[in-house]
């Protein structure tokens, strides 16, 4: 397994763990009735910012840990044209999933679903997009391209 595959796998699993923790935290807030209050949208926005910050901290921690635990895994060469192309294909997968999620959310909004639920659906779409990004990269690295 190449360094890029390992990296894509680590990012995928860390994203899954982080989002599971996020959902768990949201479920606690939901059971406390916080999403029935008038500032529910603001609360969801803050929780998303916290999720993004936690993701950045987690990725930095993983990068530092990998340098300490396995220094040999550091890139021997910066990303080349094939890496860039795979990154772009991953970004395209992210965008496709995000746009589908956005359109579905707008349809739900038109059908009368609450704005807070729509905001949550958009956050889920971002998460699913990032998973699609990671899976695309993993698949392309695994296949060779």
């Amino acid at each position: 397994m190449s360094r890029q595959e390992k990296s894509a796998l680590v990012v995928l699993f860390s994203s899954l763990i982080l989002f599971a923790v996020y959902l768990w935290r949201l479920s606690i807030l939901y059971s406390d009735g916080r999403f029935s209050e008038p500032d529910a949208a603001s609360l969801l926005g803050k929780s998303f910012i916290a999720l993004v910050l936690a993701g950045i901290v987690m990725h930095i921690a993983i990068a530092l840990a990998s340098r300490i635990v396995a220094p040999g895994l550091e890139p021997e060469m910066p990303a080349d044209e094939r890496d860039t192309l795979i990154e772009l294909k991953g970004a395209l997968a992210f965008l496709v999933v995000l746009v589908i999620g956005f359109i579905a959310a707008m349809l739900a909004l038109a059908l009368g679903v609450s704005p807070v639920a729509i905001l949550f659906a958009l956050i889920v779409a971002v998460f699913l997009g990032s998973i699609a990004d990671d899976l695309t990269k993993l698949y392309l690295y695994r296949r060779g391209f």
């Binding site: 890029q4 021997e76 060469m77 990303a79 044209e81 094939r82 890496d83 690295y141 296949r143 060779g144």
Partner: peptide, 17 residues
């Protein structure tokens, strides 16, 4: 100036440089 994986992919004809 590329990674070894890219050379592997080119050799196996999985990637056109």
């Amino acid at each position: 100036g590329v990674t070894r994986q890219t050379i592997v992919a080119i050799e196996k004809a999985h990637y056109s440089p």
